[in-house]
Amino acid sequence: MAAPSPVNAVEKVLAVLEALAEHRRLTDLARTTGLPKSTVHRILQTMVDRGFAAFDEDNGYSPGPRMVGLSGRTIGEFGASLGAEPVLRRLQERFSATVHMAVLTGDEAVYVRKLEGNKPYRMVSRVGMAIPLHCTGIGKALLAGMPEEEVAALVQRTGLPRRTPRTLTTLDALLADLKATRERGWARDMEENEEGIVCAGAAIRDHSGRMSAAISVSQLRSDPTAIDLSVLGPELAAAAVEVSTGLGTSSR
Rank of each mutant, 00 (worst) to 15 (best):
T170E: 00
G79T: 08
G69C: 06
R221L: 12
A9V: 14
E191V: 01
F55C: 03
H134M: 01
R163M: 12
V124T: 13
V155A: 02
S230C: 11
S216C: 07
A200C: 15
V16Y: 11
A144P: 07
T39P: 08
T33F: 08
L70Y: 13
P65E: 08
E22R: 11
T249G: 04
L236C: 15
L154N: 02
V127Q: 05
S230K: 11
L236Q: 06
T32S: 09
E148T: 04
S251M: 10
A203N: 02
G51V: 11
T39I: 15
G159R: 00
T33P: 09
T167E: 01
L232K: 07
T169I: 08
T164I: 04
R162H: 00
G248Y: 05
L142V: 14
L160H: 00
E116L: 10
L104W: 01
Q156E: 15
A202K: 03
L44G: 08
E235F: 10
I43C: 08
S125K: 01
T74E: 13
I75L: 15
M101K: 12
R188K: 10
A9P: 00
A9S: 12
L174M: 05
N59D: 13
G185R: 06
R90Q: 14
R188A: 07
R73N: 15
G246K: 01
E150V: 12
A152H: 00
D223P: 04
G60A: 11
V48K: 07
S218G: 05
I227P: 07
E235L: 14
I197G: 01
A54T: 08
A240F: 08
D56A: 03
L26A: 05
G145I: 06
A9H: 12
K179L: 09
T98S: 15
T164G: 03
E195A: 09
G248R: 01
A176S: 13
V13H: 09
L26D: 04
R31T: 11
R25S: 15
Q92W: 03
Y61A: 12
I138Q: 00
L232Y: 10
P234M: 10
P86V: 04
V10P: 00
G69I: 01
T32I: 14
V110I: 13
A53G: 06
M67K: 04
E77K: 03
I227V: 15
L44Q: 06
G145H: 11
L229M: 15
K140V: 00
L115D: 08
I204C: 10
V124Q: 06
Q92P: 12
E195Q: 12
K12W: 07
R184Y: 05
P132D: 01
A21S: 07
I227Q: 07
E148A: 14
G69M: 02
D172N: 13
D49S: 12
E150T: 12
D228E: 14
W186A: 08
G106Y: 02
D206C: 04
R126S: 11
T181E: 02
T46L: 14
M101W: 02
